[in-house]
Design a binder for these strands. Structure first.
Lengths: 134, 134
DNA sequence: CTAAAACAGGACATAATCAGTCCTGTATAG
DNA sequence: CTATACAGGACTGATTATGTCCTGTTTTAG
């Protein structure tokens, strides 16, 4: 599993929105707060809208807000919304991609790692993240 | 952490050599057994030699063999020999790369995942892998 | 009703990385 | 001395990552 900048920005973005629930925040504001190139973020938000994680309000004073309670959105969901399902090794994603997977003793290691990562990412809801202290 | 084909091939290759300890195996034989493009594998082996995981014997009847006992080589070492140190998210690799890492509540999640992956990969020596049944 | 603010979506650009290939050179067994 | 096998550098083509830009649409304030 490798997290692209795009997915990383998406996470930051949702995290920011989680801190201002019910409020409408513009792309510009999110971009400045989270250090994300504005037009790139706009693209990312389009995708989050389609995936029903965020909703958009057009026109003057428009912007974005979460379409669900942050407790019902987790890290895994946001990352997969942007980059699709991934794994550290393609063999853990699709054993057909690997001619050896049925006999290879490394295969179960990758599958185990994938499950562990997904479990951890699923455990972190954005309400939990927003509350977390550093 | 994303495993490239190169690193994956390296793992297969070392695994194959672990099954024939003390024997000298040619690039050709490894490539055929493990379904790896031959000239690509040759490059990978060069790197494994420099990293002292494998040793080469030149000339007629030459080839490669492990330079250490398979129990002293683990998955993490082979992968890092090929692709260097990696992590699922660059922020877990080098917090300087991320302007937010000092305040971002997601950062510890990535660091935790990285540690977990490295731990698991380190636990698998090639003697253990070679013995593992599927 | 119109101008300005803000999102939507497609096209484009650019750089890096991935996944190999190829060619020349060197060592060595027989 | 020749065939076999590794060493290493250069090169290539495809894909992906990371954005930017431009045009269009929606909406609201005045």
């Amino acid at each position: 599993m490798y997290v692209t900048r795009k997915a990383d920005y998406a996470v930051r973005c949702v995290l920011h929105l989680s801190k201002y629930p019910e409020q409408v925040v513009s792309v510009n504001d999110i971009a400045k707060a989270m250090h994300i190139p504005k037009s790139f973020l706009a693209k990312i938000l389009q995708r989050l809208v389609r995936k029903n994680i965020v909703m958009s309000i057009r026109g003057v004073n428009g912007g974005f807000q979460l379409s669900r309670n942050p407790k019902d959105i987790n890290l895994l969901e946001v990352i997969e919304a942007i980059q699709g399902v991934t794994a550290a090794n393609i063999c853990a994603l699709d054993s057909k991609k690997c001619r050896l997977s049925s006999t290879c003793s490394v295969h179960p290691v990758w599958v185990g790692i994938r499950k562990e990562i997904e479990k951890r990412l699923r455990e972190w809801s954005f309400s939990r993240l927003a509350e977390a202290k550093r």
